[in-house]
């Protein structure tokens, strides 16, 4: 059975904007799937429907046998621990230190009293430091997050997501706020972590080259609908071109 099974997800925003018109995706244990589409195609909404940062109107999301869409609030919070999310705008808490940002990945499982005093468990602190070393920001752990460069911030975002010991990584346009060279470094880092730790990733991207280079499979999204779903190796250029029809 697939690790993540999304079926018939629909979402219309309160503004009347239709984001998703019934999308199915399934994702196996160790693959990297790129969701390719233009901005406005619904890919960010799709990722947020998986952990219900955006509440889908209908459809189901099954993660590791758990029906996410049916969970109540506290069960949903528990389920979210299994899904690490990495954001386009990094979404770090700027006034906290790098280490505190990374450790905020444990908030789902740590006690409320500890979180009031920002007193993280020593073993979590140690694991957070090891993750910082792994993503290459160990020298900056005591700096405030707003003192870092874009690439370094995204590394903090990656470490924060890994801190959750996720079963899957949901990655939303990770390189769109970075220049191409730094973006490639970040993608290299994520794909090597995914391979080494066996964590599957669902990455939304709008860049065909990135999708081709880093994914095992590409899902094309257009106007809230899935228009193709192929192994990256076999995906034909015609399909890829179709995505950009609207633009040309």
């Amino acid at each position: 059975m697939a690790l993540l099974e999304i079926s018939q997800i629909r979402k219309t925003y309160a503004t009347g904007e239709v984001a998703l018109r019934g999308v199915d995706i399934s994702l196996n244990g160790e693959e990297v799937v790129a969701v390719l589409g233009l901005s406005g195609s619904g890919k960010s909404t799709l990722l947020r429907c998986i952990n219900r940062l955006v509440e889908p109107d209908s459809g189901t999301v099954m993660l590791d046998g758990v029906n996410i869409t049916k969970l109540n609030k506290s069960a949903l919070r528990k389920a979210r621990r299994n899904m690490g999310m990495i954001f386009q705008e990094f979404n770090l808490v700027e006034r906290l230190t790098v280490l505190e940002n990374v450790l905020s990945g444990t908030l789902g499982s740590s006690g409320t009293l500890r979180s009031i005093f920002r007193a993280f468990k020593p073993e979590d602190v140690k694991r957070g430091m090891a993750l910082c070393a792994r993503v290459g920001i160990i020298d900056h752990i005591r700096k405030r997050a707003d003192q870092l460069s874009g690439g370094q911030r995204q590394r903090v975002g990656i470490a924060r997501a890994l801190m959750q010991r996720p079963k899957i990584l949901l990655v939303d346009e990770p390189t769109s706020s970075l220049d191409p060279k730094i973006g490639a470094e970040v993608m290299d880092l994520m794909s090597s972590i995914s391979k080494e730790d066996g964590i599957p990733m669902l990455i939304s991207v709008h860049d065909v080259q990135l999708a081709k280079k880093y994914s095992d499979r590409i899902v094309g999204l257009q106007n809230g609908l899935k228009i193709f779903d192929d192994r990256t190796a076999t995906v034909d250029s015609e399909s890829l071109d179709r995505i950009y029809d609207m633009a040309s």
Binding site: P122, K126, A130, A133
Partner: peptide
């Protein structure tokens, strides 16, 4: 080496 490096940083952080 990396582990022992982290240990040092961790100890000084806790201190």
């Amino acid at each position: 080496e990396m582990t022992s490096g982290i240990d040092t940083i961790h100890q000084s952080y806790l201190a």
